[in-house]
């Protein structure tokens, strides 16, 4: 095991897959000479050259579309969109093309590409640079959606994404790029999509959190144990499509309570979807309504004070967890 930052783990995943398979290449705005807007592609241009590490013009829809065509032509592009916010300019190629093509042409073409995009708030970047679009992409059939929260998962999931024959939306969190964690030495195995991680075991309430909110969920669990004597089980789904619903349901059947934490908007969010699935399939096991903790239903404000208030913190999660336990404590 070696300790490394998430951005390094991601870079290693790409470098290793590029060494392994000539068809893998990276393209995006400032991924080459500039070394990546968040330095995730640092060093790749030096090792692989301009043919395989391609700086692109600022043309999001066309970058993704060129990735779709290249994938249909037998390559395995990794497209970096500078942030999830800019992926809105590429929605047509992502939804109407990348996701639809395998189905619409009945399996005659595949689109093995990874679209990486960092998002999330917390850096005072305001309304246009702080989005969380997990729910948006989760909704689209034909896409796989990954949302890693640790360096080890980031590396193993990105390797799996690159080897997968489906278009993968790979969502990274800007605040996690510098986060350190243990990563297995050497190449390491890809992590199968659809395997949640139980970060902490507990018997009183299940807390499900993704990306940065996986950490917030763990903090909350710590507080619940220390301050309230509540044992929370913490689950990080790691991928939203496919979703490891089995692990989540098994936990809910044990704790009879669930709290879902996400940074995105509440309406039609990851939590809205997941709480419905839990309610549909484990209704009789629930002792309280499923609770959701989400980002505020606003465009991310710039003011530090307002921004922090708009992002879920462990206090919110603690109070939501306690609400599910009302009357039973």
């Amino acid at each position: 095991m070696a300790e490394m930052r998430m951005r390094e783990a991601l870079r290693d995943a790409m470098a290793e897959e590029m060494r392994r398979d000539e068809a893998v290449f990276v393209m995006g705005e400032d991924v080459g000479v500039f070394q990546g807007a968040f330095k995730v592609t640092e060093g790749l241009l030096d090792e692989f050259g301009e043919r395989r590490v391609r700086d692109t013009p600022i043309s999001e829809n066309t970058i993704v579309g060129a990735g779709v065509g290249a994938a249909m032509g037998g390559l395995r592009p990794i497209v970096e969109l500078m942030t999830v916010n800019f992926s809105l300019l590429a929605l047509d190629q992502i939804v109407n093309h990348a996701a639809a093509i395998p189905y619409m042409f009945n399996g005659q073409a595949q689109v093995p590409m990874v679209i990486r995009m960092p998002g999330g708030g917390g850096h005072q970047l305001g309304p246009t640079h702080s989005h969380s679009f997990e729910a948006l992409y989760l909704q689209v059939p034909g896409l796989l959606v990954a949302c890693p929260s640790t360096p080890a998962d980031a590396k193993a999931l990105l390797k799996a994404a690159i080897r997968d024959d489906n278009p993968v939306i790979f969502i990274e969190h800007e605040s996690l790029y510098g986060a350190k964690g243990e990563v297995p030495d050497g190449e390491g195995e890809p992590l199968h999509f659809g395997e949640a991680a139980v970060r902490r075991e507990g018997s009183d309430v299940t807390i499900i959190g993704l990306l940065k909110m996986a950490q917030v969920a763990e903090e909350a669990a710590q507080k619940l144990a220390e301050e309230h004597g509540v044992q929370a089980e913490v689950i990080d789904p790691r991928t939203l499509r496919p979703l490891d619903l089995d692990t989540i349901l098994a936990s809910v059947r044990k704790t009879n309570r669930a709290v879902i934490v996400e940074e995105g908007w509440p309406h039609g969010g990851v939590g809205a979807n997941l709480s419905t699935l839990i309610t549909e399939q484990a209704f009789d096991d629930l002792d309280a309504p499923v609770q959701r903790v989400t980002g505020a239903d606003v465009h991310m404000p710039y003011s530090k004070r307002l921004e922090q208030a708009a992002i879920p913190h462990s206090e919110h999660v603690v109070s939501a967890a306690l609400a599910t336990l009302e009357g039973s404590l």
Partner: peptide, 28 residues
């Protein structure tokens, strides 16, 4: 769409095929 004949579609979005064409050419 007919992969065998290298007829790569057939797209309902006006202009949607242009970037894909660039990508196919890039692959070649």
């Amino acid at each position: 769409f007919d992969a065998e004949k290298r007829f790569m579609g057939g797209y309902g979005i006006v202009g949607g095929n242009l970037p894909i064409a660039a990508g196919l050419a890039l692959a070649s």
